[in-house]
Write a protein that binds this DNA or RNA. Structure first.
Length: 826
RNA sequence: GCCGCUGUGGUGGAAUGGUAGACACGGGGGACUUAAAAUCCCCCGCCCGUUCUUUACGGGCGUGCUGGUUCAAGUCCAGCCAGCGGCACCA
């Protein structure tokens, strides 16, 4: 029999699947819906890389498994086609993004088809198509109509390399998430979406989601909820008040100063002279200096504290103490009230500041070490739990109790008010880039924004522009758009020239897969005239996505935006399920020599040569065999031969040991009892392993079974067909081939997933181990129905066991059925 | 600093509290072959002892470290150490 030829076999089955249209499902008629998809890729000029395969291959295996279990599995694929990667590729190649993106999508579909995944191409989506982005713009209009979209001037993150502003989520360590360039702050008027209105829901719903704990923790962390109190202090000698947010009001008797963020209005007034002060010059100079610093420079300063005294003092409500008011850039304008009350004895940063500017330190908490001395060294700063001292009516209380007492006191006296703060900021959605969905806004001659009426959607992206980024929107240079706006709205009206963050496009794409129409030759999105982005019946039936698979790097970006948009769309009345993704799985990361693969490092592994040599089944099997799916691993090609050997051995088993001709359909299944029990055990194991995404052990179970089957003289046709079905989710092409070869009817992917018989799992003899004082001293074989009494007898009769029992008394003996006998002697 | 995760042979990795190292890779030895490839069979954690010293048996140690619970711990508990990921001058 000839060798297994993956290229020919895989092409054969891909063609058959496509011709039979078995993967396109009727969303309306499906009875047992199961919706799963991966995070859609962005089309660039490159081929699919190992990361794609590692994500898509196992995800497809899970989809196939579910299908065989009787679900109507909907597994679509689409393209995150707007955005920087596509635009940058266009800039580099000089080809307009609309053309290059379309070309790249075409190539990519070809590559995806070569993988052999069961995607339903009749329900695809592409965020750069006008039929898609009209809905992105519609979403903006909905947000605007419900008061969730607003324009505001403020300091924003700007990436000098990408030439656009970025959302908080897209700046990491002060650098751009896409290109690692240091981000600068710029005061600009930008569009925001009010994600902060949904913080509590975003937090609360996390408990209901079947997501990795790690991801939920990251989101909680990112949202950064803190409960504390805003305390208002009067400023001595003027009519001003300063409100400080603190989570530790219990230490307020130890407060010795106040620090303001440079952006704080009080600091600005001192610097401008609106509030008279001897220190005006120093404050103005300090504010000027901090303004010039980049985020990175600030970080490089480390913990060294800088600052300027304002010349004013605030009065502590509790004891009348005067607290000098300082300005320092370690206080952030965007958190709390932008003003901090300094308690240097019990906060390390405050201590460092106090030391730098010789401000007194007061101890108000004694920790478990009992140290009551003056705090003069950073190690002595007591931030942990302890007992109150020097704090009037709080003395001798544990800090948690003191906190409650003082908060009640401050509220009663109207000195303060309990508040909850969050770190999450509103989502900045404006981008000064060309390749995105235009924000559907126009400005009247006075500069007031107005929405573009729905009937003008899609609000087409102009094509008469230089799409290279310059820092202002390239679209501003479009004569066509200017003309269009004046024609529709009147003379002097101007367009908004920014596009939306691509995370807007991807915040609702799972709904767009459902909304795609499959009645045309090429898929189309639902028309705008239908009033809602998705048919409510389909949404109710299919959402939320049962299993969503993609990288963990999206935890605080796409995955938080999509949750927000789901909630908003539900509130607007368009959908039923506010959480779009019930179950989320992150594949691990495949590294190369320990480093993340990236083009700039030049360590990207291309799957192509392996796929060409071994086939797509072998390549994806190998990735799955490397280790648990969620853990990823370091790339090495040394083991791929082992998986190739496995595939070849499977083929040889069928071609050499399967009875041919008529015998194939006769009942010749006098399968050896040992083989039968192994077969049932394998069905059980493979089922359980795929369910928990341990594809690696599912495959090793199939290898073990193969080892057993190879030792038989004949491969029983029933066993052969069962083996083919077990193989189907993991090696879809090979499975079809051996299914057909062993006389199976139709496609193996259309077969029912095999069940197992628990009574068949028990082998005819079992091995029982004997331990004496916890150490293995022997073993014996017995029938599975051995009684406890017999087991103990056999155990004691073992030669080596007897040696260890000699001259000793048995104090305790126990039998763990089917496993071991444990004897304790003294 | 805070949150989350991980730590097992030469390597990737297996192990509902019950024989640690399944399944592979790699290596060693052998068979087949004129030869090679392919294929097939056997062996491979460390140390020690006994034995016909190419065989077999026995003992001790061994899952990052130190303790604890248990007849029994890679697994459970406490305290560390190291690495990875996220957040971070967040009051």
């Amino acid at each position: 029999m000839s060798q297994y030829d993956p290229a020919a076999v895989e092409a054969k089955w891909q063609k058959k699947w496509e011709e039979a249209k078995i993967f396109s499902i009727d969303l309306k008629k499906a009875k047992n819906p199961y919706y799963t998809h991966v995070m859609w890729p962005y089309p660039s000029g490159d081929k699919l890389h190992v990361g794609h395969w590692y994500n898509f291959g196992p995800a497809d295996s899970l989809a196939r498994f579910k299908r065989m279990q009787g679900f109507d599995v909907f597994s679509p694929m689409g393209f995150d086609a707007f955005g920087l990667p596509a635009e940058n590729y266009a800039i580099k190649s000089g080809i307009p993004p609309a053309k290059s993106t379309a070309d790249n999508v075409k190539t990519m579909i070809g590559q995806l088809k070569r993988m052999g995944c069961m995607y339903d191409w009749t329900h695809s989506a592409n965020s750069s198509h006008p039929e898609y982005y009209q809905w992105t713009q519609w979403l903006f209009l909905q947000m605007f109509a419900h008061g969730l979209a607003y324009k505001q001037e403020g300091n924003v993150n700007f990436c000098p390399s990408c030439q656009t502003v970025l959302a908080n989520e897209q700046c990491q360590d002060g650098t751009c998430e896409r290109c690692d360039t240091v981000v600068v702050q710029k005061p600009l008027a930008q569009w925001y979406w009010k994600i902060t209105d949904f913080v509590e829901r975003l937090l609360k719903n996390l408990d209901t989601l079947d997501w990795p704990e790690k991801t939920k923790a990251m989101q909680r962390n990112w949202i950064g909820k803190k409960e504390g109190i805003d305390i208002t202090y009067l400023v001595d000698g003027c009519n001003e008040r300063i409100v400080c947010f603190t989570t530790r009001p219990d230490t307020n008797f130890g407060a010795t100063f106040i620090v303001l963020a440079p952006e704080h209005p009080f600091a600005q007034k001192v610097a401008s002279g609106a509030l008279p002060s001897k220190e005006k010059g120093a404050v103005a100079a300090y504010l000027e200096a901090t303004k010039k610093k980049t985020e990175l420079e600030r970080q490089e300063e480390g913990r060294k504290k800088t600052g300027a005294f304002t010349g004013y003092e605030a009065i502590n409500n509790l004891n009348g103490a005067k607290m000098p008011i300082w300005v320092s850039d370690f206080v952030l304008a965007g958190f709390g009230t932008g003003a901090v009350v300094g308690v240097p004895g019990h906060d390390l940063r405050d201590f460092e500041f106090a030391q730098e500017f010789r401000i007194p330190v007061i101890r108000v908490v004694v920790g478990p070490d009992g140290d009551t001395s003056f705090i003069t060294r950073p190690e002595q700063v007591q931030e942990e739990a302890g007992t109150m001292v020097n704090s009037s009516f709080l003395d001798s209380l544990p800090i948690m109790e003191a906190k409650e007492r003082i908060m009640n006191f401050l509220e009663e006296k109207k000195y303060g008010k309990r508040v909850t703060t969050y770190r999450l900021r509103d989502w900045l959605i404006s981008r000064q880039r060309y390749w995105g969905a235009l924000i559907p806004i126009v400005y009247d001659p006075e500069g007031n924004p107005h929405t573009v009426p729905e009937k003008h959607l899609p609000w087409l992206l102009p094509t008469d522009v230089e799409f290279k980024p310059t820092g202002t929107s390239p679209i501003a240079g479009s004569p066509e758009l200017k003309k269009r706006v004046e024609k529709i709205f009147g003379k002097g009206w101007t367009p908004e020239c920014d596009t939306m963050d691509t995370f807007v496009c991807s915040s609702y794409y799972s709904l767009m897969y459902l909304a795609a129409q499959n009645d045309a030759k090429e898929y189309r999105q639902r028309p705008l005239s239908s009033g809602a982005l998705v048919d409510p019946k389909l949404e109710e039936k299919w959402m939320p996505v049962d299993c969503y698979i993609g990288g963990a790097e999206h935890a605080c970006m796409h995955l938080i935006y999509a949750r927000f948009v789901g909630m908003a769309l539900k509130d607007f009345g368009f959908i039923q399920h506010e959480e779009q993704y019930q179950r989320l799985i992150h594949q691990g990361v495949i590294t190369n020599k320990g480093a993340k693969m990236s083009k700039s490092k030049g360590n990207v592994v291309s799957p192509d040569s392996f796929v060409e040599k071994y086939g797509s089944d072998v390549f994806r099997l190998y990735l799955m065999f490397m280790g648990p799916f969620t853990e990823g691993g370091d790339w090495s090609d040394t083991g791929i031969k082992g998986v190739d050997r496995f595939v070849q051995r499977v083929w040889r088993l069928y071609s050499e040991k399967l009875p041919s001709g008529r015998k194939l359909n006769k009942k010749v299944d006098q399968v050896d009892a040992q083989v039968t029990s192994k077969l049932h055990a394998t069905v059980k194991k493979v089922t359980e392993d795929i369910e928990r995404l341990h594809f690696n052990t599912a495959l090793s179970a199939l290898m073990e079974l193969l080892n057993v089957l190879e030792k038989q003289d004949v491969l029983a046709p029933d066993a052969a067909r069962t083996y083919a079905t077990l193989l189907a989710p993991l090696a879809p092409h090979l499975a079809e081939e051996v299914w057909e070869y062993s006389g199976g009817k139709g496609f193996v992917i259309d077969q029912d997933w095999p069940g197992y018989d628990a009574s068949q799992l028990v082998a005819s003899t079992i091995t029982i181990v004997v331990q004496v004082n916890g150490k293995v001293r022997g073993e014996f074989t017995a029938s599975p129905d051995i009684t406890e009494k017999e087991a103990l007898e056999f155990a004691k009769a073992e030669e080596n066991v007897q040696r260890h029992l000699e001259g000793k008394k048995i104090k305790k003996e126990m039998y763990i059925p089917g496993r071991l006998v444990s004897l304790v002697v003294a």
